[in-house]
Amino acid sequence: MIDFSTPPYLLQAHTSVRRVMVQVLVALLPGIGAYVWLIGPSILLQLLVASLAALLAEALMLRLRGRPLGLFLSDGSALVTAWLIALTFPPLAPWWLITVGTLLAIVVAKHLYGGLGQNPFNPAMIAFAACIVSFPALMSQWPVLGLKLTLVEQLEMIFGLAPRIDALSGATPLDALKTALKIGEGNIDIPTLLATQEVFGTFAGRGWEWVTAGYLLGGLWLWQRKVIHWQAPAGFICGLSLLAGALWLWNPERFASPLFHLFSGGAMLGAFFIVTDPVSGCTTTRGRLIFGFLAGVIAYTIRVFGGYPDGVAFAVLLLNLCVPLIDMYTRPPIFGMKDGK
């Protein structure tokens, strides 16, 4: 290869992988803030555990693969994965569960596939999916809302020093809704449930609705900063709302409103931080729309009709599989070739 000197000589100093990743982390802060305020400060500990595990795993894998440690450790991609894992796992999950998830994500889903930029699947979603399949009980123990635990008590729970008390056997609002409907066997309808049960708030899960609103805020900021494209989130929100809306209009007693679904579970986090992952997502404009839309549809289907409390992780992983196909069929026409000549 003839080594031409590299144009352009004008480097755009304000763009780098690290900058992209740091902005994603910053965009997660409003959601994390609401989480700490409304759910409990234990999430901070989980974030710390996940971050440490991710950085250690990253360093280990980089060393094994003979890659420069400093350059890749500081790119921030491992931290983004770690934070997403911490935010999707139950906040009082034992420390080893989140560590196992993070190791799976960094070692298997990321580095065994070739590291940064090479992973076909979203590492955080691999972690979630693997853990919910392997440890279903632990993964569905959410703190009962209004559970007043001191920070020390929360620490003891996470590190296994205290027994996992009954107070933990709460469920996510989505899960609660599904379970209540099942138990009610048609004698109970959603509007009554939402109005009577303590787990539900103004328009979705109590507390959680504001956490997800925080994600929405961060996501919009990312879009405004041009870190993410609008197509995938828009597609996801459309896919989820259209299906949810159609069923809700048909039978509002059996199906919750699109608003409820958008602000429950992993929908907002998924829309702005998961389906927008450029590495495992589609690269074409139309592809991103399709990717987001189908992910939304599948996520809704799994969370309402499936056996799991939420379906975002499985929907994203399924769509990750389809990325090469979607990309191939949505390649945009190039300059001068738009009339198909």
Partner: peptide, 29 residues
């Protein structure tokens, strides 16, 4: 005036190149 290029990192398929391409190619591909 022309600082040396920072080290090359792997492509993260962000698509910024495709948006900047005046010939509407997919440079990352």
């Amino acid at each position: 005036l022309f600082p040396p290029a920072p080290p090359e990192m792997p492509c993260i398929r962000c698509g910024a190149c495709a948006e900047a391409c005046p010939h509407e190619l997919q440079p990352f591909d």
